[in-house]
Each structure stands twice: as structure tokens, then as C-alpha cells.
């Protein structure tokens, strides 16, 4: 892993808890990772894995009255956790920007899209309205909006979902942030549009050297776009490593199960192999490994450790950049991953 110094984003021991009458919802626990400039980290998880709570914390967007955030999030060297609102305001948009799942709610319905991109620019740059508007048109053009100059005058409802998401991406990139956090940026889009938007994200990232954190439930989406993957389960990182390597040879039973249960266009098998049960409550997560109640291998680990001791996230021996959280001896084969060699 990269040292925090040359990373665009360095997260250490990030923990997010939501106090409720019934106790704390432990959305994220002890999450650490770094992303270099120009690199894409795919954060993969199902609902309740904590992936969105983690993404939200990267911009310091949690309401301090509702959430307790601890640990450290360094964006281009500036600490986000515990930062005061004026600091965060300077940071957001300029150093770290977010692309949300639903572009319709990310845009203001009353204002033309060009003006919204221009405002995002003016928030961090002392330029005239006219110059900001020019900059917005150039940005809209860059993200592939045809006839950008005239479309800049359109309101969000006049654009398709894919075009709206392009506008949101233009807003995120207009200040040239060091880090872009995209939370399910293509989930609400049609598949042909999704492919275009993924291509666009990759292109602008290569051009600008932005670090991208791509949060998604869809392994297929990050398989083709991410350099590294981090798999989350019940608020914790359970596996991490180079994307292709991790998907071809998962070393943690949850990742393996997720791959087994993902339907694809190429596999010959007619029947899917689901992970039994459902994800645990974050209010009362199980003791030991959070995945053990659903794990097909837990029984085989001597001493029933999976049910009592939380495994550490440790390097897989002999493999560069691979980490996993599992008691299972490394030499126990999980069976072929769906895409195994």
C-alpha cells in the first residue's frame, strides 16, 4: 500500500456509528485504505455493508448530531474527520467531490444546468459570471453533452437520465478535485448509458489524474474499471487487492460467495449458487467474523474460532497487495471462483 504522504486520499481506522434508542448502529468499523492520484478504488458491498456511510464520511457529510465519526480521512493532506464547517466547505468541490446515484436529486430542478456547473466553479474561484459560464460550457462539452452551449440553458427535466448524470460529473470535475467519490454512479441508468458513463469517468480520470473511489454493489461494473478493490461486509473491509487478481482468485469466502451468486452472460451453468441467509444487523452484529453465520467454511475452522474471534485484515502470504480477513488456512481452496482460471 502507498504511504499516506503521496496519496490523494488516506483513510485510517475510519469508524461511523449512528446512536439510536436501541443502541449504536455500527455502520463502518476500522476502515483503512489509500488511493493514489489517477487510481480507481472500487468499494464493493451489499446493502448494509457500510459502503455509503464510508463514502459520505470521505466528504465530511455526516450530520454530527446523528453520526459519530472517528479515525482519520486525509484528502490531499487535509483532515476531514472533525474538521469545522468552513474548512469542509473549502475542501468540498475543490479537493473532493461526489457523484451520487440519482442525478435528478443531485441537481436543482429550477436552474439551468450550465448555471449549476458555473456556480460550482464560482464557489471556489473568484471569476466573473461570464467566465464561469464559459468554463461550464467547456466542462459540459468535455463530458459529452452534445451542443453544450445551447444545452447549458436546459433545465434538468429536459435532459435524459444519462445526460443528467453527465452534468453531475461535470459539476464534480469543474474544480479539478484531487478525489472524486462516486456512489453507485450508474446504478440508476440503462445498461447502454451506464457503459458510456463508465467510459467517460475513466477517460476524464486519466486526463486529470483524479483519484476515484467508486462505490458499488455491482462487481461487473468495477471489474472493468477499478485498479484495486475493497470488499466490505457488515461495516468492515473483509478483502482487498488488485481488481483482476481478487476477482479471479477470491481469498475470502464472502467475496467468493458473491461471485458465485452473480449471474453473468457467459457461464454455462443454469443454476446460481446463492449465499445462504441475509446480511447481519449492524445494531447487533454477530460475534467473531461477521460473515460466519452464512459462511460455508466456518465449520471447518478448528476450535469454532469464526464464531468467537474477529479475524484481522492481514496480507495474504506470497501475493502482492492482497489482504483478507479470514481464519481459514490460506491453503484451503474455496473452489473455483466463477471466473477462475
Amino acid at each position: 500500500m502507498t504511504s499516506a504522504a503521496d496519496a490523494a486520499l488516506a483513510v485510517r481506522d475510519l469508524t461511523v456509528r449512528f446512536p439510536t434508542d436501541a443502541g449504536d448502529v455500527r455502520a463502518v468499523t476500522g476502515l483503512s485504505f489509500t488511493v493514489r492520484p489517477g487510481q480507481t478504488l472500487g468499494v464493493v458491498g451489499e446493502s448494509g455493508s457500510g459502503k455509503t456511510a464510508a463514502a459520505t464520511a470521505l466528504l465530511g457529510l455526516h450530520d454530527p448530531r446523528r453520526a459519530r465519526v472517528t479515525g482519520s480521512v486525509l484528502v490531499a493532506g487535509t483532515e476531514v474527520v472533525g474538521a469545522r464547517e468552513p474548512v469542509l466547505r473549502r475542501l468540498r468541490g475543490r479537493s473532493v467531490a461526489m457523484v451520487f446515484q440519482d442525478p435528478t436529486s443531485a441537481l436543482h430542478p429550477f436552474y439551468p444546468v450550465g448555471r449549476q456547473v458555473a456556480e460550482a466553479y464560482r464557489a471556489h474561484h473568484a471569476v466573473s459570471r461570464a467566465d464561469a459560464a464559459e468554463r461550464a460550457v467547456a466542462m459540459l462539452d468535455r463530458v459529452g453533452i452534445p451542443a453544450a452551449r445551447s444545452r447549458a440553458g436546459d433545465h434538468p427535466h429536459q435532459l435524459s437520465g444519462g445526460m443528467r448524470q453527465r452534468v453531475v460529473i461535470a459539476m464534480a470535475l469543474v474544480n479539478g478535485p484531487a478525489v472524486v467519490v462516486a456512489d453507485e454512479p450508474t446504478t440508476a441508468l440503462d445498461v447502454t448509458v451506464q457503459a458510456d458513463v463508465l467510459d467517460l469517468l475513466r477517460e476524464v480520470q486519466q486526463e486529470t489524474g483524479t483519484a476515484l473511489v467508486h462505490v458499488t454493489h455491482d462487481l461487473g461494473v468495477v471489474a472493468e474499471t477499478a485498479d484495486r478493490l475493497l470488499v466490505m461486509y457488515a461495516g468492515r473491509a473483509v478483502e482487498a487487492g488488485p481488481a483482476r487478481d481478487l476477482l479471479a482468485r477470491p481469498r475470502m469466502p464472502y467475496t467468493w460467495g458473491l461471485l458465485q451468486s452473480t449471474p453473468d452472460l457467459g457461464a454455462r451453468e443454469e443454476r446460481l449458487r446463492p449465499v445462504p441467509g441475509s446480511p447481519p444487523s449492524l445494531l447487533t452484529p454477530p460475534d467473531g467474523c461477521p460473515f460466519h453465520p452464512r459462511c460455508a467454511f466456518a465449520e471447518t475452522v478448528p476450535g469454532g474460532r469464526c464464531g468467537t474471534d474477529l479475524p484481522d485484515l492481514v496480507p495474504v502470504s506470497g501475493e502482492t497487495g492482497r489482504l483478507r480477513r479470514c481464519h481459514l488456512p490460506e491453503d484451503v481452496p474455496l473452489g473455483e471462483g466463477q471466473v477462475g482460471p
Binding site: Q194, A195, L198, G220, A223, L259, T262, L265, G266, Q338
Partner: peptide, 11 residues
């Protein structure tokens, strides 16, 4: 079909 993101293709 060519637009469907696919784990196999990606890896």
C-alpha cells in the same frame, strides 16, 4: 449485450 458489465470480461 456488449454493454453489460461482466466480471469474466473484466478479469
Amino acid at each position: 449485450m456488449s454493454a453489460v458489465p461482466d466480471v469474466r470480461r473484466g478479469t
